[in-house]
Amino acid sequence: MRLNRMSLGLFIAVAFVAGIIVSPRVHHLIGEAHAQAPAAATLQPMMIDLVALKHGDLPGTPNPEMNSKGLVTSDNATIAIQSGNVAKHNHPKTDEIQYIIEGTGAMWLGNERKEFKPGTLIIIPKGTAHGGSIVTSGPVKAIAIKIPPQPAGDTVFMN
């Protein structure tokens, strides 16, 4: 019985958080960060083979070590595939979730160096330092989810 109550409580908490993430009305109430986000396209059903996408297949970025391609844009979040490395930084207005698909190494997460490997899920609350990876096998390829969509100027590089 205790396990069922705990499972029910966990389910309710996850459902509540999911409702906040997907509710445009809640994001409207949050304010300016949402207003500055890029306009969203209508979502289309699709399947994407992320394993088949290689570093060189992805468009370059201003960071010469990072390639990235946006996959999904909505009013509430963006999802991109990233390959490469970026210096230690934070996002003051955007939460980020990364899922490592390929590559191993260590990166800054807050004030600690944390190891990662394929299958690692990295939760990065807004304002948390991250990046500056030491790659032991790579390039590192990850899915990056930004909530809400990252506004221009929301990357602050750190020493």
Results as ranks from 00 to 15, higher is better:
residue 3 L to N: 02
residue 4 N to E: 12
residue 7 S to I: 04
residue 7 S to E: 09
residue 8 L to G: 07
residue 8 L to P: 00
residue 10 L to M: 04
residue 12 I to Q: 09
residue 13 A to I: 13
residue 14 V to I: 13
residue 15 A to M: 12
residue 19 G to Y: 01
residue 20 I to Y: 03
residue 21 I to H: 03
residue 22 V to K: 07
residue 22 V to F: 15
residue 25 R to G: 07
residue 30 I to E: 06
residue 33 A to W: 08
residue 33 A to Y: 05
residue 33 A to H: 08
residue 33 A to G: 08
residue 34 H to Y: 12
residue 38 P to T: 14
residue 39 A to Y: 06
residue 40 A to E: 04
residue 46 M to C: 03
residue 49 D to M: 10
residue 49 D to S: 09
residue 51 V to L: 14
residue 51 V to Y: 10
residue 55 H to C: 00
residue 56 G to S: 07
residue 57 D to Q: 09
residue 58 L to K: 06
residue 58 L to V: 05
residue 60 G to W: 00
residue 60 G to E: 14
residue 61 T to L: 09
residue 62 P to I: 00
residue 65 E to C: 02
residue 66 M to L: 15
residue 66 M to V: 11
residue 71 L to T: 05
residue 71 L to G: 09
residue 72 V to N: 04
residue 74 S to Q: 07
residue 75 D to S: 13
residue 76 N to F: 04
residue 77 A to T: 03
residue 80 A to H: 09
residue 80 A to N: 13
residue 85 N to W: 02
residue 88 K to D: 08
residue 89 H to D: 09
residue 90 N to D: 11
residue 90 N to M: 14
residue 90 N to W: 10
residue 90 N to Q: 11
residue 93 K to Q: 15
residue 96 E to C: 12
residue 99 Y to L: 15
residue 99 Y to T: 12
residue 101 I to A: 12
residue 102 E to N: 13
residue 103 G to F: 01
residue 104 T to H: 07
residue 106 A to V: 09
residue 110 G to Q: 05
residue 111 N to W: 01
residue 114 K to M: 10
residue 115 E to C: 05
residue 117 K to I: 01
residue 119 G to W: 04
residue 120 T to N: 04
residue 121 L to G: 05
residue 121 L to C: 14
residue 123 I to F: 13
residue 125 P to G: 11
residue 125 P to N: 04
residue 126 K to F: 12
residue 134 I to W: 03
residue 137 S to M: 01
residue 140 V to G: 09
residue 143 I to D: 10
residue 145 I to V: 15
residue 147 I to E: 01
residue 147 I to Y: 04
residue 149 P to L: 03
residue 154 D to N: 11
residue 157 F to D: 03
residue 159 N to T: 14
residue 159 N to C: 00
